[in-house]
Amino acid sequence: MNMANSQPGSMMTNTLGKAASQQMSREVTVSAQDVKVYYGDTQAIKGINLDIYRNEVIAFIGPSGCGKSTFLRVLNRMNDTIDGCRVEGKVTLDGEDIYDKSLDVVLLRARVGMVFQKPNPFPKSIFENIAYGPRLHGLASSKTDLEGIVESSLKRAGLWNEVKDRLDQPGTGLSGGQQQRLCIARTIAVSPEMILMDEPCSALDPIATAKVEELISELSREYTIAIVTHSMQQAARVSHRTAYFHLGDLIEVNATDKVFTQPEHELTEAYITGRFG
């Protein structure tokens, strides 16, 4: 396993990796080793090992409270903002330990973006929402540069045509689905390498959901995406691989069609056949 540190990109031997039947590069971008998370005295995650490959969409599924969202937040250290939360084990991004003391969490989050369950645009204009990240990180060298970033981010999020005439209006005035795509555009504007999505469609209606899912497939060409979802259909539609979590354990991870047709573990089977959830 520690090969991940020395030789990123040569993880073909990984047992979990074998299952990935996509015709993409098998370069590991994130590798979690024996990750444990505690909230105060309760253990939320009990030692998870998982590799995530570049430019894949991986879905985390499992019943409520199984730790899938917690694990997602481990990957860009959003857990740091929660009082009393403690992470053990090792997580590397391109071979770099992201829990290392010398690592700058600001830099990490610029590389690993996040989209949240509820659309949460800032109470600012649409333009300011997108420009927020680039401004923070000094990514634009001029005003035109910044406008370019905003435009391309909105275009890539498929929102440009809908909002190009009202960039100066508040982002909170958009519909729920538009807001969520705005939030995705906001994340893209920082050009992260990876995007974490925490149930991005749970607050949306079916049409808006379809649009966001379409967007996810589109984005998977350029970005590595990890998505937590409650909907097995959604996982089946958008992801290449699926990981099943149960009570803080990673039970099974495999190519999505394999997980849904021939699950290896009986717990996975029980879950996907709807015996609990």
């Binding site: 700058d104 600001v106 830099l107 610029a110 590389r111 923070l136 990180h137 000094g138 990514l139 050009s191 390498e193």
Partner: peptide, 17 residues
């Protein structure tokens, strides 16, 4: 491209911290 971007972010970090 990525490296350049990260360099930019890193350059701003000292001031921001």
């Amino acid at each position: 491209k990525n490296a350049e971007r990260l360099a930019r972010v890193a350059a701003s970090l000292k001031k921001r911290h």
